[in-house]
């Protein structure tokens, strides 16, 4: 499934801008939400091909958003979810989240260039 539209849910301005910049340069259509509530509303109202989801978000944590979107039933079956966090979660929460997402990445370890290659990989799968 080809990925064209991407929702970025990220509260850090610099990081958000950096991702948006590199994704747009690579030709993706990008929406960016800075808090959890807006992010969840956007994710439910528009069928994105891919969501980049931060965890430590204001209003609503990324974990809660993922729980709503994928917990009981998969509300976004045609969307790839990439969890992007710098927070070192405990093993248990991390595994639970990996289960509901297509990728789980540490932001500090992923440059935009690497992120693009991950998205391409998901796009091809």
């Amino acid at each position: 499934m080809a990925i064209n539209s991407i929702l970025v849910i990220e509260d850090d301005r610099f990081i958000g801008e950096m991702y948006v910049r590199s994704l747009q340069r690579a030709g993706y259509t990008v929406d960016w939400m800075v808090d959890g509530n807006d992010g969840l509303i956007a994710a439910r109202n528009k069928p994105y091909d891919c969501i980049l989801l931060d965890l430590m978000l204001p209003e609503k944590r990324g974990g809660e958003i993922l729980q709503v979107l994928r917990g009981q039933q998969d509300l976004i079956p045609n969307t790839k979810v990439i969890v992007l966090t710098n927070f070192d979660q405990d093993e248990h929460s991390r595994l639970a989240m990996e289960h509901n997402a297509e990728a789980y990445l540490i932001k500090a370890e992923i440059t935009p260039k690497k992120l693009l290659s991950v998205i391409e990989k998901l796009s091809a799968s």
């Binding site: 850090d12 610099f14 990081i15 950096m18 710098n86 070192d88 932001k107 500090a108 440059t111 935009p112």
Partner: peptide, 21 residues
């Protein structure tokens, strides 16, 4: 430690990201 690491990793993300780009 988890919170401190989270804080430190934020700027590092931006530094590494832009350096790479």
């Amino acid at each position: 430690i988890a919170f401190a690491a989270h804080e430190l990793r934020g700027p590092i993300t931006v530094i590494r990201g832009y350096l790479d780009g």
